[in-house]
Design a protein around this nucleic acid. Structure first.
Length: 473
RNA sequence: GCCGCGUUCGUCUAGCGGUUAGGACGCCGCCCUCUCAAGGCGGAGAUCACGAGUUCAAAUCUCGUACGCGGUACCA
């Protein structure tokens, strides 16, 4: 295939939604797969709703995901001359015409049509205006919009994902290209830009599919070949409704702040609608870029399964080097401890943490001594008669040299045997003393990482606490 | 209302005329085990939305119906 040119064209009216992220991802993958060009274009023609900060947020989110663009970002707000030129040309060629009806008039027609049970379509009365009259009224300062003269023939949208759909002649009315205040509208700017940028493949959400025939008509009017379309199914929440904040998180930034790795999110998103076949699932961006094909994208909407994202994220955490993990977890708050200790801690947490948030939380035991103890744990092990055993263990562990997990465990096992209980009966209260919780990474390896002093202090403090339960709060 | 699209285990999906309908998440059980995970092994879970048709043969092709979603702007 000749090097394709694709674009991702978000409008900065919100932060990057995962649906948009997936669209960007597919465009990126497709470009990379075929040695093409990935263009970023910001569709900010709606000045009232577009915000500059949001543009930066979108760029940041894409960068974070690893979706680098080759050209742009281009801003439609800075390309007005191009649209005006195209509009003038279309008008001069008679492919578009001025329509002088006011918005109020149209609104009234629409209301009347609806009242009559029908649907409104612009009747095209502006078509019959002579060039002279049109020019005269425009020169006289009368307000007008520019409408496309939609050809009276069927419009075919050939879509790699959704298949071929034919829209019968007359299905479209002569839609507006340029508003009466001179602002070019979405459909128009999209096509003008796609032509100007030499876009060969348009990959976007199905919500744009109903717009596609308009674009087909526009490309024809512009005298340009139609790009190949690929309309992607929606991403829905678990309830089958369009994914939104209501479902917990819908924006890339939100997942990032939940401690999701960029690689995991990208991998997960890629699998929502696209499948490499051969039961492959875990793949890096570059691995996907080697085999990505638009033809393997499914047409149906898919639900966003947070559980599976978390699982994938856990998988990525497991295979990310500890040093890197520490960097990634830093924004979520790391205890003030030497790096060597934290590095050991990360290794122990690696198979357990599903998110960076969990990783950071798990690392907190290497900081302050536990301030609180799990209620269920206190209920089970907060018995005064356990205090002497714990004190004995504290002393024995303190005497272990070197202070390494094998020896520490041996000491604990010996004490358990002497006391006539299983190791669990000793280890669990100690775990509670050390971490405040009944669930943690392997105890003796944690103790080794924590060091002699901290271990002794925590066990003794806990022993004191359970020895005098009344004093405990 | 009208127009368009979609429909395989709860979820993501493989499948592209003949399969015991495969995998993954989740769930359950077993193993491992100081707890929790991870990991290994095994299991339950899909009359392929429904109804017609084409065919020796249909999850796969065609047409209806139902349900879901999207669109229906001088928004994007």
């Amino acid at each position: 295939m000749a090097a394709p040119r694709v674009r991702f064209a978000p409008s900065p009216t919100g932060s990057l939604h995962v649906g948009g992220a997936r669209t960007a991802l597919y465009n990126w993958l497709f470009a990379r797969r075929h040695g093409g060009t990935f263009i970023l274009r910001i569709e900010d023609t709606d000045v009232e709703r577009s915000k500059k900060e949001l543009t930066q947020q979108i760029l940041d989110a894409m960068t974070w995901l690893g979706l680098s663009w080759d050209e742009g970002p281009f801003f439609q707000s800075e390309r007005q001359a191009l649209y005006r030129e195209a509009a003038d040309r279309l008008l001069a060629e008679g492919r578009a015409y001025r329509a002088f009806e006011t918005a109020e008039e149209l609104e009234a027609q629409k209301k009347a049509a609806e009242a009559a049970g029908g649907s409104f379509k612009y009747d095209g009365r502006g078509r019959s205006l002579s060039k002279e009259e049109s020019d005269r009224r425009a020169a006289a300062g009368e307000k007008f919009v520019l409408r496309l003269r939609v050809p009276d023939e069927p419009l075919v949208v050939d879509d790699v994902v959704q298949g071929r759909t034919e829209f019968p002649a007359g299905a479209l009315d002569d839609f507006v290209l340029v508003r009466s205040d001179g602002h070019p509208l979405y459909h128009f700017t999209v096509c003008v830009d796609d032509v100007a940028m030499g876009i060969t493949h348009v990959v976007r959400g199905v919500d744009h599919l109903p717009n596609a025939p308009k674009h087909v008509a526009l490309f024809r009017a512009l005298g340009a070949p139609c790009p190949v379309f690929a309309h992607l199914g929606m991403i829905l929440g678990t309830d089958g409704k369009k994914l939104s904040k209501r479902h917990g998180a819908a924006g890339v930034e939100e997942f990032r702040s939940q401690g999701v790795l960029a690689e995991a999110l990208a991998n997960f998103l890629a699998l929502l609608g696209w499948s490499p076949g051969e039961d492959r699932e875990r793949m890096t961006l570059s691995a996907m870029a080697e085999i990505f094909e638009l033809e393997r994208i499914g047409p149906s909407p898919s639900r966003f399964d947070h559980e599976k994202l978390l699982w994938l994220n856990g998988q990525y955490i497991q295979s990310t080097p500890g040093e890197r993990l520490l960097e990634l977890a830093a924004p979520f708050g790391l205890p003030a401890r030497d790096e060597a200790t934290l590095a050991k801690g990360v290794e122990l947490l690696r198979p357990r943490a599903k998110t960076l948030v969990e990783l950071a939380a798990g690392l907190s035991v290497y900081g302050e001594d536990p301030a609180a103890f799990e209620p269920a744990g206190l209920k089970k092990f907060g018995k005064p008669e356990l205090a002497p055993v714990l004190r004995t263990l504290a002393a024995r562990l303190d005497a272990v040299t070197p202070f390494a997990h094998a020896g520490l465990e041996e000491a604990a096992r010996a004490l358990a045997a002497e006391t006539g209980v299983g190791l669990g009966q000793i280890a669990q209260p100690v775990r509670l003393a050390i971490t405040g919780s009944l669930a943690s990474p392997p105890l003796f390896e944690m103790i080794e990482a924590l060091g002699r002093d901290t271990t002794r202090r925590r066990i003794l403090a806990f022993a004191d606490r359970i020895a005098a339960p009344a004093a405990a709060s």
